[in-house]
Amino acid sequence: MSDNPYDVLAIKRDASAEEIQRAFRKLAKKHHPDLNPGDPRAAEAFKRISGAYDILGDPEKRARFDRGEIDASGTEKPPHRFYRDFADASDGHPYASAAGFEDMTGTDDLLSELLRRRTGTSFRMRGADRHLRLPIDFLEAVNGTNKHVVLPDGTALDFVVPAGVSDGQILGLAGKGEPGLGGAQPGDALVQLEVRPHRLFRREGDDIRLDLPISLTEAVLGGRVEVPTPTGRVTMSIPKGSNTGKVLRLRGKGVLRPQGGHGDMYVTLQVVLPENDPDLETFVTHWQRGLAHNPRRDLEREA
């Protein structure tokens, strides 16, 4: 842009004194640095406008400029320190005002801390907590496990998932959150566990449930069968004449309780017939007592 004061004020060479003043006022109001506290170009623009007006606003200087006796920068003023240079530089000045945000400080911790800092107290703020979700296997939740997790920002977390945690439970890892400010404590990492379902086991509180298929022979005659539990296989006795739906308890084979001890495991028996067994068909065909047995007698009486 030209330094020519006529161009700066955007007026014609033959503008009247009034037009010059009007042009100056219009531009000065727009570009005054104190009315544009955050605009770095405002000071430069205002200086050019003021410089131009210094020449053109004074009939004598204007005549000298028109005659070419002084140039556009011929009348530079000493550097003007604007109010914004002081008001924006520090908070400790007497005109500082919090009226523009005071109402937000009650609800916003960060702003409250900043305000406290501005009034002289040193600024310390505990780091923010990190919130994480961690999927773990059913058996990891029941038996406990060590976990190594690398966060997106590269932070590595090593921690123990204690035995007996449940789905949705939150593990607090002290000091593993965001770093604190001003030497304050870091926040915590809060890890919410998502326990994936198991193919066989179901969890009810501290107890574990399992559906166990047994053979017709085992159901009728009883016997000892192997049962999977979260801690390995155990042998269980099936009493004679065990029906589908019968529930057997394995004491202490459930989940570790927070207060100590273990829950129980409940095994629901399911009698499974052999497929396509002609011998069984022959036997049942001639089994008079079986033909007479009506397990729905109660249902029929009710209905």
Binding site: D34, L35, P37, G38, Y83, R84, A87, D88, D91, Y95, A96, S97, A98, A99, G100, F101, L110, L111, L114, L115, R117, R118
Partner: peptide, 18 residues
């Protein structure tokens, strides 16, 4: 204007610290 300007400076200073 002075009052509003002082509020602007207060806001600017808080914004800067944030």
């Amino acid at each position: 204007i002075l009052d509003l300007l002082d509020q602007v400076h207060g806001l600017r200073s808080v914004l800067r610290e944030v």
